[in-house]
Design a protein around this nucleic acid. Sequence first.
DNA 1: GCCTCCATGTAATTGGTTACATGATTCT
DNA 2: AGAATCATGTAACCAATTACATGGAGGC
Lengths: 183, 183
Amino acid sequence: MSLRHGILGLLAGKPMSGYDLTQEFDQTLSHVWSASHSQIYPELSRLVEDGLIEHVDSGPRGRKLYGATDAGRAEVLRWLREDDPGRVLRVEAMLQGFFLWMLEPDEAISLLDREREYHAARLSVYETRALDGTDWEVDAKQRTRRIMLDAGIRYEQGLVEWSTWAIGELQRAEQLRGARFAP
Amino acid sequence: MSLRHGILGLLAGKPMSGYDLTQEFDQTLSHVWSASHSQIYPELSRLVEDGLIEHVDSGPRGRKLYGATDAGRAEVLRWLREDDPGRVLRVEAMLQGFFLWMLEPDEAISLLDREREYHAARLSVYETRALDGTDWEVDAKQRTRRIMLDAGIRYEQGLVEWSTWAIGELQRAEQLRGARFAP
DNA sequence: GCCTCCATGTAATTGGTTACATGATTCT
DNA sequence: AGAATCATGTAACCAATTACATGGAGGC
């Protein structure tokens, strides 16, 4: 139950509303975990029921702030210490990659180019964020954010490099193929 | 519906049984898409119903080989050409990473060390596989396999480097903290 | 004869997506 | 006055996991 622990971990950091959590998953955690508001709100109710979070404050427009209870914080720590994380990966774009051989070379190249562009765009988002964070290194929380942002940067960088290289490979292969007919 | 297209793409390559597909997802496609046999068998039935694959041969122990039909191959191509891949990512280990600040420095380091070890192990599996593949470059299919294996290698390499670096960061931070009390 | 691996399937449950539904506040 | 954004929730459906269930073939 990772969504549960994700929410719990965020609320252990500071009180937030369902809306805030939705944004956090969508922005900061996006390269690590996805969750939509329709999943988050019911999970918040369950966490309250289980005594792991509590309703701590209210704001305008029915806004409800939740915070982690002691039991909630303890549960995050237990999860971090004891639970081996699942290793399932599902990356649809990379699954498509496995079937590139079915496409004409130029189509395969344009698919890889789509990937290169996507990851270059993500990379520049993360790099901007890295520059924006001025007061890094002040405390453990900031340091963690920096470390996880770096993971995102390295991941996107790796994929930009990979797709650039792969495009080159396909172009080289096609030139060789052409040369056999027009030497 | 990525599982569907994953199966279809594999069967467009060569006829396989549900058992073969399960192994393929578990071994070659593991860093890209996961699927268990309990998901695969029902999906095979649905694909037959929809005329995208057909039962082409039988073997011992009730083994059933399926192959893609023309409609099936056409559907893979349509998917590759027209469908924008989903960009949802879910990596439980990295989600845990976001809450490292809640742990004592030595615990955080050992969590990162677990990651380093896991990815180093995966990396060596892929690197062995890269050496085993002798007749690379012979055709588009082999070239695709090489390119996707390379994606896996770069991904794991990136994470080994990242976790090594992150461990260093935490160690450095802890030394600085210690120095303030014992200058 | 027994163990392991090959091989296929189903059922119950949980997790996640998409669509539906509503209302308050702020900005222009 | 109208649009955009904030904010919360539910319902129907689809996807995935875990557990249950069974049997044949080959090796020792």
